[in-house]
Design a protein around this nucleic acid. Structure first.
Length: 583
DNA sequence: GCCGTTTTCGGCCCGACTGTTTTCAGTCG
């Protein structure tokens, strides 16, 4: 057995092979194939190593016979001879240089080979000393460009993706800047922001205008821009001071539909659309759809998709995971909408329960008031359980009884509105729960989650989760993968086994709507509902404002193709309550 | 290298922008 190769490692390896082939001027489709394989591996929901052990590598798109053979060798021996041969006569330093914006494989190869540059630091020095400008194919302008881009790589550190909640306010500011221009008829945020991907890499903006040049000029004046990367007659890109990249495209309103569609993506969705179009004698671009020489323009996306004989596809589903086939066959599911949500049951209050983790900021009463404003029918009050290391068993029971007494009073003073007396309990490192059975019996139900030892291996994590799933007192598993976006990876778990157990015990998996969680992730949502597991969308609020995050959880569900019936908090109280210990 | 409801061979999305060129290659989304 060699060392463990994660999907991230493998994707990086494929990208290097792709770049190597590009540097060598190999067949461009081979280059694309390795790039596609890398992307596919990055999107996979299981570790390739596990799939390989189960003989299921062929379920990953983009991995053909040849690449699967290489992976076989990698997992068995820890290396791939063919890959080493490909990279053998290339300067190793070139791969680091690909991080620098504007440098592709050809330029990186030249710089690493001719100037013996091994990393971004050396690249910066070479540019400063004027060595790059003298190289054939490079000039003074590209030297200056490289110098700037190299320093930006060092400045941005490790963060390359932004939370939706961080990106939206920035998008709003650039949109309002653009909308202030008299020639701006419409401005929309597109790309991964519109598709509501959990994290976004850049902000894409489309503008409808008869005067694209004026819009581009106005765009360049946005106060938060640190550097304009490029600016043509209808397209521009810029870097913001906070490191986010902005991309702008402009099109007249009568042809705006194709631009919306193009710029929303995803890339793979568009490629698939265009390949299908070719087979039908058409050519699709951001200008419209060409049939022969005639260009058909579309004011709306609906008209665009209709022309291709497809049902309208919501942005959240445009990831080329079957939505195109479904739209052609008129078989797209009716996914849920934020208006379907009737309650939120993962809410932390300021009630002094002496928890192991953080208290919320607001009282039960304030939470209930806010829930009513949101037109919910019910809430679950679910503070963390009392700390196990700081309390005796008897003290824990006592605290739960006192809290329950208070909640019972609230129930009787809110007859029309429904309140669940819950706790979010810990699945401890040994697999036991942080509240003894005697305490659990007092509650209307429990949400259980892993809050410690996230580093445990796949087998241990799975076992810990199974004890909670199999407990008759646990109805919901919170933030099931434990990921914290940009901070902590998901832990490994046997999802097939977990989904089966959830289905059998009618245990609900949470889609946690907290913006740096969004957990279950969309891909696992889709797998779970395919098995028949029921889900619930909760905000995990620690203050009232957090209750507005429900929309992010709904987007995750929509990206996972969830219908209202897959999500139990779309149910009216009469049906919803059956999942809990209430009459 | 991958892939298949017109294909196991012969295809593989489409276009913008920039710099170093003298008609185009490289990079990007």
């Amino acid at each position: 057995m060699g060392k463990f190769f994660s999907n991230k490692d493998i994707a990086k390896l494929f990208r290097e092979i792709s770049a190597s082939y590009a540097a060598k001027g190999e067949d461009r489709f081979k280059i694309i194939a390795y790039d596609n394989a890398a992307t596919s591996v990055e999107h996979a929901t299981s570790e390739l190593k596990d799939l390989w052990e189960d003989g299921k590598l062929d379920t990953v798109p983009g991995l053909g016979k040849s690449i699967r053979g290489h992976l076989d060798e990698l997992f068995k021996t820890g290396k791939v001879k063919h890959f080493e041969d490909v990279k053998k006569d290339l300067p190793q330093g070139m791969f680091d240089l690909l991080e620098v914006g504007g440098l592709g494989p050809k330029s990186a190869y030249k710089l690493a080979k001719e100037l013996k540059i091994k990393n971004v630091d050396e690249l910066e020095n070479a540019a400063k000393s004027g060595k790059i400008g003298n190289l054939p194919g490079f000039g003074k302008k590209s030297e200056a460009e490289i110098l700037t881009a190299a320093s930006e790589v060092k400045g941005r550190g490790n963060i390359s993706r932004y939370l939706l909640t961080d990106a939206f306010p920035v998008a709003e500011r650039i949109l309002s800047h653009l909308r202030n221009h008299k020639d701006c008829e419409r401005a929309e945020p597109l790309g991964s922001l519109r598709r509501m991907v959990a994290t976004v890499g850049d902000i894409d903006i489309a503008v409808a205008s008869k005067n694209p040049k004026a819009i581009v000029d106005h765009f360049k004046k946005f106060r938060e821009i640190s550097r304009v990367l490029e600016a043509g007659p209808r397209k521009a890109s810029a870097l913001l001071q906070n490191g986010i990249r902005l991309d702008l495209m402009v099109q007249p309103a009568n042809a705006f539909g194709a631009l919306l569609q193009h710029f929303t993506g995803s890339k793979n969705h568009n490629i698939h659309l265009r390949e299908d179009a070719i087979k039908n004698g058409m050519s699709v671009s951001d200008y419209g759809i060409k049939v022969g020489k005639k260009l058909h323009e579309f004011a709306t996306e609906e008209a665009f998709y209709k022309f291709l004989k497809m049902d309208y596809i919501i942005p959240e589903m445009r990831e080329d995971t079957g939505e195109i086939e479904a739209a052609l066959g008129h078989k797209l599911p009716e996914v849920l909408d934020i208006r379907d949500i009737k309650g939120d049951i993962h809410l932390h209050s300021s009630y002094p329960i002496e928890p192991s983790h953080d208290l919320g900021k607001d009282s039960f009463e304030q939470i209930i008031k806010r829930a009513k404003e949101l037109a919910y029918e019910y809430v679950g009050l679910s503070d963390h359980s009392p700390g196990v290391s700081t309390h005796t068993k008897a003290q824990i029971i006592d605290l739960i009884k006192k809290r329950s007494h208070k909640i019972e009073q609230l129930k009787s003073s809110n007859i029309e509105f429904r309140i669940l007396n819950l706790l979010e309990i810990d699945i401890l490192t040994d697999g036991t729960l942080s509240v003894p059975e005697e305490g659990l019996k007092i509650l209307d139900g429990a949400i259980a989650g892993i809050h410690s030892s996230h580093h445990h291996d796949k087998k241990t994590i799975t076992k810990r989760m199974m004890t909670a799933i199999n407990s008759p007192y646990v109805q919901v598993i919170s933030h099931p993968t434990g990921r914290l976006l940009n901070q902590r990876e998901s832990y490994e778990a046997d999802w097939t086994k977990i989904f089966e157990a959830c289905k059998k015990t009618q245990t609900i998996l949470e889609i946690n709507a907290y913006p740096n969680r969004l957990d279950l992730p969309d891909t696992l949502v889709r797998e779970a509902i395919n098995v028949g597991v029921k889900l619930i969308i909760n905000t995990d609020s620690h203050k009232l404002e957090h209750m507005d995050n429900m929309k992010y959880g709904v987007s995750v569900a929509r990206r996972g193709w969830a219908k209202p019936k897959d999500i139990i908090n779309t149910l009216p109280w009469a049906n919803f309550r059956k999942y809990f210990n209430v009459t």
